[in-house]
């Protein structure tokens, strides 16, 4: 059988919120390592990859590797039934037709049990190559969310330019141009609020704001986001989640014809 109990159940709710608008259905792959998911959006423009390590659960039991084929909208609806302070347990048999989600209140006075039908999903698994990125930008996740929101008012795309002066996000539309420049800040003792840039080569790439905005749904999961950019390659947007794992998004760039 498979059983994974997450004391901080709100994390599962947040992971769900971070993928449900991007991915319609996906396999949650459960192994001894933990629970992982890889899926593309319906347009195949972006890819999401997440890992919830087994040691983030208490207890975690996986007798046999299984894939839980799940409709995200249905699971999101069920996750909304869990309170933020609930303990969430995911449970299924070795050859499952359905999965059970159990939500326990902290004092265990209330226990909710939701059973959901599984789907047969024939998903394509993509190999993500190791890439030497031209620039790796770390910034507060809330700052990145703000930039995507603000520039969405100006245009459909954002041009990310990274050089020795810092990183610039710019958008262009019928009404004009918006530019947001961030410099690496020198505050050492305030790690969460830092912008840091690891620059190997100056780089400039354009991405669809619609997808980056979907990615920022992961903001409640982490204080920091990392953007890894390389010429003519997808950007990797990573949110590392304390004590359990990560959610990474990849977005193909827009290329000038």
């Amino acid at each position: 059988m498979f059983e994974a109990r997450l004391v901080q159940g709100s994390l599962m709710k947040k992971f769900m919120e971070a993928i449900k608008d991007l991915v319609k259905e996906a396999n949650w792959d459960c192994t001894g390592t933990g629970i992982s998911l890889q899926a593309m959006d319906t347009s195949h423009v972006s890819l999401v990859s997440l890992l919830l390590r087994s040691d983030g659960f208490d207890p975690y039991r996986c007798d046999r590797n299984i894939s839980l084929g799940i409709n995200m909208e249905s699971m999101a609806k069920i996750m909304k039934c869990a309170s933020n302070d609930d303990v969430i347990t995911i449970r299924s048999e070795d050859h499952p037709d359905n999965v059970t989600f159990v939500f326990e209140s902290p004092n265990q006075e209330k226990v909710c049990d939701y059973e959901m039908k599984l789907m047969d999903i024939d998903s394509e698994h993509l190999g993500i190559p190791d890439t030497e990125y031209d620039a790796i930008i770390s910034m507060p996740a809330s700052e990145f969310q703000r930039i995507c929101r603000d520039l969405s008012n100006i245009g459909d795309s954002v041009k990310i330019t990274c050089n020795k002066d810092g990183v610039q996000f710019s958008a262009q539309g019928d009404t004009g141009i918006g530019k947001i420049a961030l410099k690496q800040n020198a505050v050492i003792d305030k790690e969460d609020g830092q912008v840091s840039i690891e620059l190997n080569d100056p780089v400039s790439l354009t991405f669809a704001l619609r997808y980056l905005t979907f990615f920022t749904k992961a903001t409640p999961l982490a204080s920091t986001v990392t953007l890894s950019v390389s010429a003519k390659n997808p950007v990797a947007v990573e949110y590392r989640v304390d004590d359990i794992g990560y959610i990474r998004y990849y977005l193909a760039p827009k290329i000038e014809e």
């Binding site: 190999g127 290329i255 014809e257």
Partner: peptide, 14 residues
């Protein structure tokens, strides 16, 4: 005009 790429151009099937 910029053209949106797809992810499978960059990542291959396993």
């Amino acid at each position: 005009v910029a053209k949106q790429g797809v992810i499978s151009q960059y990542f291959s099937s396993l």
